[in-house]
């Protein structure tokens, strides 16, 4: 009798151990992913469905992003960071380009925009040949890889006040903000991606990553409008060393910083014109 009890309790404990989900990074099963086949997106006036994106995903995305959305597609092994960043692991639900605060899920609009915009300095091209309907479906498809899109709601997008007029005072103040929050630690005092910490940066997966070089004519990863630049440093690029500065830069000052950053860039801008009259010196790297 006692032996039977012992055997049963042993069997039971083994069963319990097997039933416990293994806490490794993601690596979900096909069944788990398939259980979210009814995921929807609501964007650009469309309702996107997973099954309507299956063809496009397999045709255009699977090579890098993989059957399971874990970024382990056939081609992924040939992408070598930092020159070619590895594809996202969609299962983790972590995205660089968001309108939402750090540590929150992006909105459908954010994913929709990223697909069309592509990611500069990566293997992710501009996918603007898709119709909006196709993109809406792909957003649903991307979301269905991660259980987080079931258990969590997207973050509330940050509020961006209307863009003020560029003035010399604003550019000068932007320079002060750049010095105070020490953007130069990574981006360098002249925005050339050569700050003291630039050489040791790694992303959350442990791959080498380089800060954005404002001066080489390339585009910021999450868009190159003034609003995009504002959004990048106020939300942070999750999964990378770029933190959110939302707690340390006031909304109005944030615009000043955008204008100052513009003065580093090759692209023509009002801020660059105004800055010509100011003969600004780079900030000091010795606080």
């Amino acid at each position: 009798m006692r032996t039977t009890l012992l055997t049963w309790s042993l069997l039971l404990s083994v069963a319990v151990m097997l039933a416990l989900p293994s806490i490794s990074r993601a690596q979900l099963t096909t069944e788990d992913i398939a259980s979210r086949d009814n995921m929807e997106s609501h964007v650009a006036g469309y309702t996107g469905h997973v099954h309507d994106a299956a063809y496009d995903y397999r045709r255009y995305c699977v090579g890098c992003h993989g059957e399971m959305g874990d970024g382990n597609g056939e081609v992924a092994q040939w992408l070598e960071p930092p020159m070619w960043p590895k594809p996202r692991d969609f299962q983790l639900g972590i995205f660089k380009c968001r309108s939402t605060p750090t540590g929150t899920l992006p909105t459908d609009d954010d994913l929709f925009d990223t697909i069309a915009r592509g990611l500069d300095r990566s293997a992710m091209p501009i996918w603007n040949q898709f119709t909006k309907y196709q993109r809406a479906n792909l957003v649903a498809y991307v979301k269905h890889f991660s259980p987080r899109f079931v258990s969590e709601k997207p973050g509330t997008p940050i509020v961006i006040p209307p863009e003020p007029e560029v003035t010399p005072e604003r550019i000068k103040n932007g320079r002060e903000v750049f010095a105070r929050v020490q953007c130069w630690k990574c981006h360098g005092v002249q925005g050339m991606a050569n700050g003291p910490s630039a050489s040791t940066l790694t992303d959350d997966l442990g791959y080498k990553i380089v800060p954005f070089n404002f001066t080489d004519g390339t585009r910021p990863k999450c868009g190159d409008t003034d609003r995009d630049i504002y959004r990048i440093f106020m939300t942070g690029l999750d999964g990378t060393p770029m933190p959110s500065f939302a707690d340390n830069i006031k909304p109005d000052e944030a615009w000043d910083l955008v204008f100052y950053l513009r003065t580093f860039m090759q692209q023509k801008s009002k801020a660059k014109e105004v800055a010509k009259t100011l003969s600004l010196k780079p900030v000091s790297a010795n606080p």
């Binding site: 806490i23 299962q91 020490q182 959350d204 060393p241 939302a246 340390n248």
Partner: peptide, 22 residues
């Protein structure tokens, strides 16, 4: 000096975030 505080939990268990502290 500026720091960024960047906890890296398993995103399936807790949610990672990354904030600056100048």
């Amino acid at each position: 000096t500026a720091h960024n505080i960047h906890p890296e939990p398993n995103p399936m268990v807790n949610i990672p975030w990354n904030q600056s502290q100048p």
